[in-house]
Every structure is written in C-alpha cells, then in structure tokens.
C-alpha cells in the first residue's frame, strides 16, 4: 500500500528515503530510526482521521520537519505530506491528489494501519469479551479476540499453534461471569489446562502472531517491533512464515488482499532466513546523531556477500553497517 516514505529532519532521520516492499524486515542498532519509521506510519494514520488540506497543485514543502508518503497503485497518484512543528510534534497533513475521491479511498486503507509491541503481562490478564473486536497493540485482549473468532477460523489457528508447539494439544477458554475471558492451552500429556498467566512469554507471542496471521479481516498494514522477542531461534522460520501468510497470501492458497508488513528485529537468526529474499531486508544505519535507511539489495556487492556465510553473521560482523557505534579505544601513551 505504501510505496515509500521520505524523511526530512524527523528525529534522527535527517534526510533519508525508504522504498517499502510488501514485506520489510528492518535491522539496525538502537536509536537508528526503526521505531521512528513505525511512528511515522502511525502518525499518518492518526492525522488521516481528521480532515486534511487536499490540493492538486504543486506547493512548496513544509519548512519544518517533514515526512512524505507515496503509495502503490491504485493510489500512486496520491502523495501525503506530514509537517511537524518540532522534531516530536507533527500535526499538519497535506494531501496532493488529482481526485479527492482517490484520497478518500486511500484514507480508508491508511486508517487500517496497525502497530504491535506484544506485552505478555497484559496478555496474561483476562480481558472483557467486549474488548475483542480487534487485536490491541500490546495483544492484551488476545483471549477476547480469539473468543470472538468464528469456530472454523479458530480451529485453523489452534491446529497451527499445536503444530508449532507440539507440547500442546489444543486451546480452550474459561468464561468468567463478568464477561471476562481467559485463554487456556491444553498440554498434550495429561490434558492439563494451562492458563495464559502460566504460559511462557514466547508461547504467548506466537499465539499473538497467529492471531494476526489467521485474522479473517486483517489490517492493511502491520508494524511489529522486535518480532523475534522471546521466541526460540528455531521457531523464527514459523514466525516469518506466519507473517508471509499475511503479505503473500497467494503463496498460502489464500485469496485476499496482501497485508504490508514492517517488522523490526535484532536477531541474526531471523535475518538468516532472508537469504533468499534480500530485497526484504532494510538496514537502518546510524552515523553519529543521524540515521538513514538502506536496502540490502542496494549494495552492489550483496550477492557476493550472501555467498560468504549466514546473512545474520555477515550483519553482525559490521560490514553491512546497521550495528552500534563503538567508542574508539584511547591511544596508548
């Protein structure tokens, strides 16, 4: 949906542009703009809720910090500028479009952008069934969301959960009288019922990813921070594939519009899994107080580098950039 984002003086992103693919894995050191990218997308969604200045004319850019969004077809003619009154306050939205109805359609998609940073403490608390319309940003209402899923959809998710984590044989619910609901996992041996508060952090995160992957009405775009967090390296292939199910539905025999994904990670093991799709890897480069984005495939030597070893190891070595800066050792006397 979003073709590119261009930043000018937005936090550490002083002058950089990123072309977005259907799936984007962003790696880089802390403070390199990964979260700022997601914040920019959420800002776009927030400001799109309100009436915007719509113009067909070429107008000069904002003098303040600015973010420019361009879109994929059928919205390729639309361009949206966010103007910021400071590095941290962006409240100006300007839309350039040849037809206002095109913006109306694009806006509908923008309003369906969602961002997630899973919180296992929040997930362990039984939510009210009334909160289960869609997955919350911290997945704290996961039990309610799954409780409201159609039985056939829930069965698919349950089967996938049990395949990924074979120590479990099923999922069930405990309904409280006050409309709160608790998700329960059934152990394969002994059929013991394990409540969410006793499930591991990684198990809960896998459940949340599956809730998104099997969502019958998914968002138009999903941003997930630290997608590898709490998950065993050997399970990362399955996590990647769950997200691929969203962004490449035809590869999984599904007929629905693709969901654009922006995921961040610090895991070399997850990065290894993108050897066959380097075009999906974005490296956030941090140089002093400035950050910029670079696609792995934009490096002229990326093919040769990929032949030399696991992509995660190559990234960790520092030759791709996207690693923390180190203070040079002081010269010996």
């Amino acid at each position: 949906m979003i073709a590119s984002v261009t930043f000018r003086n937005f936090k550490a992103l002083r002058n950089t542009s990123l072309v977005l693919a259907p799936f984007n894995l962003v790696v880089g050191p802390n403070g390199s703009g990964k979260t700022s990218l997601i914040q920019a997308l959420l800002l776009l969604r927030s400001l799109a809720r309100h009436p915007a200045t719509v113009t067909a004319r070429t107008v000069p850019p904002f003098e303040s910090p600015e973010i420019v969004f361009r879109f994929t077809p059928p919205f390729a003619a639309v361009e949206v500028e966010l103007g910021c009154s400071s590095d941290f306050v962006c409240d100006l939205l300007r839309v350039k479009t040849p037809a206002p109805e095109l913006w109306a359609q694009a806006r509908g998609e923008i309003l369906r952008i969602r961002s997630y940073l899973f919180d296992h403490y929040a997930m362990a608390e039984p939510p009210s069934l009334d909160e289960g319309k869609e997955l919350a940003g911290n997945a704290g209402n996961l039990a309610a969301v799954l409780r409201r899923r159609a039985p056939e959809n829930f069965k698919l998710l349950e089967a996938e959960f049990c395949r990924l984590l074979p120590e479990f044989s099923g999922l069930d619910f405990h309904d409280f009288p006050d409309r709160r609901v608790q998700l329960v996992a059934l152990l394969s041996e002994g059929r013991q019922r394990i409540q969410m508060e006793n499930l591991s952090q990684g198990t809960l995160y896998v459940l949340a990813v599956l809730a998104l992957a099997f969502d019958p009405a998914p968002p138009s775009m999903i941003c997930i921070e630290e997608i590898d967090r709490g998950i065993h390296p050997r399970l990362l292939r399955e996590v990647r594939d769950a997200l691929y199910r969203l962004s490449y539905p035809e590869s999984f025999g599904e007929k629905r519009p693709p969901v654009q994904i922006v995921a961040t990670t610090h895991s070399p093991y997850l990065l290894d899994l993108f050897k066959d799709h380097p075009e999906e890897v974005v490296i956030a480069q941090k140089e002093g107080q400035t950050a910029r984005f670079e696609r792995l495939v934009d490096r002229p030597d990326f093919k040769e580098l990929l032949n030399e070893g696991p992509l995660g190891d190559i990234w960790f070595s520092g030759i791709l950039g996207g690693v923390p800066e180190e203070k040079p050792p002081e010269a010996s006397q």
Partner: peptide, 15 residues
Amino acid sequence: RELKWRVYGTDRPSL
C-alpha cells in the same frame, strides 16, 4: 528461487 518455484509453486513455501 526458480527451483523453489518449480518444486513448491512459490518461493515462500510454508514448512
């Protein structure tokens, strides 16, 4: 990638 397509019908097969 082409070999994957020919075997799996996609270059992003599920496990």
